[in-house]
Simulated assay, not measured.
Amino acid sequence: MAATESLPATVGRRLYVQLGITLIAFAAAGGMLAAHRTTLDSGTDRLAAADREWLLLACAAAAATWVCAAVAQQGAVIERLPRGRLVAAQFAAGAANHLLPAGAGATVVNLRFLKRCGLSTGRAATALAVKAAVGGLVRCALGVALLVASPGAVHLSARVPHVLVLLPVAAAGAVLAAVISGRLRRLVVRAFADVRDVHRCRARAGALWGGSVAFALLHAGVVVAVVHAIGLGLPVSRVVMAYLVASGAAALLPTPGGLGSLDAALALALTAAGAPGAAAVSAVLGYRLLTGWLPMAPGLLVLALLARRSAL
């Protein structure tokens, strides 16, 4: 009974901690924007004059990320999920992810969707954990492969601390520390069992890993297209590496949709790759506009529609 009574208190404390971190991140982001208002204005003007064809390509890449997320989610479970509702759920999850910290919005939407599809709460949670773990492994593997194939992908300016490259390593260390903790040990064992079951079917394994790889590359492709749209002549390998480093660093701060943490990390990574400050801000604004702000309203409408039709 005591353990049951202490559970709500533990969850409440965790939510308060996440909310506190989110507010601190928002305050820091607001302070940075105020301190660099001139650079922000210049970056906005540059984005307004960007090449429309490259922006359309970036829009197409952003839209394709939801399809890839659906493919990866299907690959994480053995049961066949309804395709149309699965894609719609990923679109709605992206909007919900910008409302709650640490990816909680997307997790809640996908958890409810999988339960509506007949999975138990434990198996649905495990499927989401498998998808998230594969996504993290894919980003690390892409970064290593890019370094091997193109050593010049990491180009650090003297204006940016070299420790930026170590942030994904720190993120991986934090994840490993969480995994070996006793509280998550049973979840990890269950996740490995589900991974083993999924990989017995080549089609499911291909969907899980292929969808995760395509998801990461398409997000990086959005940044690459926006960088070209504003006329910034950075090599593609450096831009992709900048995104991989920034997304890994942003995972350390549980802000809604990476708002503030991903923005700052991506701007810093692009500056480290050789972009001027105003151009880096333009690229971040374009990426955030296409992947977060513009899809927000229609994503919430789809979320409401799915809930009304009892799909969530």
Rank of each mutant, 00 (worst) to 15 (best):
I78W: 00
A149D: 07
A129F: 11
R80F: 09
A153G: 07
V160F: 06
L128G: 04
A69R: 01
G103N: 08
R83E: 15
A70N: 06
R112V: 06
G94Q: 13
N97H: 11
I78D: 02
E79V: 15
C140D: 07
A89R: 07
L146Y: 09
F113H: 09
A63M: 07
W66R: 01
Q74E: 01
A132Y: 05
G105A: 11
G122Q: 10
L100A: 08
L146F: 10
L156H: 11
I78V: 11
R83S: 15
A88P: 02
V165S: 07
A102F: 12
R80H: 10
G152H: 13
N97R: 02
A72S: 08
G152L: 05
T126S: 03
R83D: 15
G75Q: 03
C140E: 14
L146W: 09
A69I: 04
T126A: 02
W54R: 09
I78A: 07
V169Q: 00
L142T: 13
H155I: 08
I78R: 11
R116H: 12
A58T: 06
V87W: 15
L57C: 14
S157D: 15
L57T: 15
L114Y: 03
G75E: 05
R116E: 13
V130W: 00
L142C: 10
L56A: 11
A92S: 10
P161T: 14
A89E: 11
A158I: 12
V165A: 10
G135T: 11
G136I: 11
N110A: 02
F91A: 05
L119H: 10
L164E: 05
L114E: 03
A92N: 03
G135L: 03
Q74N: 11
V165T: 13
L137A: 15
A96C: 14
V71G: 01
A60F: 10
P168R: 05
A95M: 09
K131W: 00
L119D: 02
A132F: 06
P101M: 05
S120G: 14
A141N: 05
P168M: 05
A92L: 06
L137N: 06
Q90L: 13
S120C: 03
A141T: 13
A102Q: 07
V67I: 14
A102W: 08
T126H: 02
R139S: 15
A76H: 01
P151C: 14
A158D: 14
A132K: 01
G143D: 09
G105R: 01
H155L: 13
G105I: 07
F91V: 14
A133G: 13
P151E: 13
G122H: 05
V154N: 05
Q74I: 00
N110I: 01
L55G: 06
A129Q: 00
A58R: 10
A102Y: 02
A69L: 08
L114F: 08
F113R: 13
Q73P: 00
A141S: 12
C140S: 12
G75C: 08
Q73A: 02
W54A: 10
L56K: 00
E79Q: 12
A88Q: 08
V144N: 02
